[in-house]
Amino acid sequence: MKLLELHFYQFTPTFKHTIQTPKVTLKTRRTLFIGLIDDTGNEWFGECNVFETDWYYDETIETVKQTLSQWFETIKGNVFMSFAEAQDLVGDLESRPAARATVMMALYQMFHELPSFEVPMTITVNGDIQRRLVRLDYAARIKIKWNPHIVEQVKMLTAMYPDTPITTDANQMLCEQDLPLLRALARYQLTYIEEPFPTLIDYRCTKDLPPIAIDEQATDEATIMRAIQHYGVKVVIVKPFRVGGIDRAMTLIELLRNQGVTVVVGGMYECGLSRYFTALLSRYGDYAGDVTPANYYFEEDVVEQSGQLNQGKLYFEPPVINQHLLTCYS
């Protein structure tokens, strides 16, 4: 098999409800897609999870496009006959995990038959808790984005859903003055909090806090193991685009679970193609992953009916891209 062409596409769905985080407000989700054309004429798609700016990570849509354009010129026409040989093709992308993950999503499909499956559902609440309450009965995990009413919301939700794990994500925006809030959350049995501080702190200072999970800092095996061994981290959020792709994510999940570390598979306001792979990986996590139902964030998606709610679980079929919704990247 050979790769003969690399195409870049974009898709910009509008969020049903504005996404408000401590760092950015999002009304739309501009998304980069790639298409790899092989020597049989098939086109294999990958979805990139980074954003237009570096608010979340230093790779952006534009840098990924530049990286992959340069990479493709070095491997174009190379022969590869197995997934292991396909992995060798991306050797030059080790320092650019989001770019590598985008390519690996396409390469993985060349050598693996994608299954249909069901997964439990996570509901993410972004300041729109009243609109979401009606759907929370189906959630296997409820994730609340950090906000000024976090303690009241956690108290309410743990009372309403005592058997459902409740988690939150602070996006590294907290400081010492917020410790009383975290102690209050621990009293209400918050399952874990993602990345509360800009840097990890001594585990002896976190004993009376909710379990701390790493997310943005879960970038590779060495970094993750250092966080576990030196800072007492007990929960790791594995995001394929942060660790370099689905293959790297699978290896990390197996390693961490063998060591007794709690693993959750994370997503990133994904369209249907990437969401399929997040769901695929989330089957191996200890809690429901960041997987939401079809049409949860967007009215329109490039993969139709991806993740249909069925008796409290999300049903996925192998993704088929609606190419009419993709436009050439400009």
Rank of each mutant, 00 (worst) to 15 (best):
E194K: 12
F117S: 02
T124H: 06
D163V: 08
A170V: 05
E195W: 05
A86H: 07
R187H: 04
V103W: 14
M104S: 08
R187Y: 00
A170I: 02
R141G: 06
Q87N: 11
P165Y: 05
A139S: 07
L114T: 15
L182W: 02
S95A: 15
Q189T: 00
P115G: 00
M121V: 14
E85Q: 15
M104W: 15
R100F: 10
T63S: 15
V125K: 03
T158L: 04
T168R: 08
A101K: 00
V134Y: 13
M156Y: 11
D128I: 08
A184D: 10
E94R: 15
F72L: 09
L190E: 05
W71R: 04
M156R: 13
M104D: 07
H149D: 13
K145H: 06
P180N: 03
V154H: 03
V134G: 06
N126L: 10
A170T: 08
W71T: 00
N78E: 06
H112G: 04
I142A: 05
H112D: 08
N147A: 07
Q66D: 12
L181R: 10
A159E: 11
M160Y: 09
F72R: 10
H112F: 05
S116E: 10
T63K: 05
Q66N: 14
E73L: 14
Q109G: 04
Q177F: 06
A86K: 09
R135N: 12
Q66C: 07
L136F: 09
V90K: 09
T122I: 10
V154P: 11
Q70L: 12
P115V: 06
D169N: 03
A84K: 15
C175V: 09
E73M: 10
E176T: 11
L157K: 02
W71I: 01
R96M: 13
I193W: 03
A86E: 05
R187V: 01
L190K: 01
A184Q: 15
T60D: 00
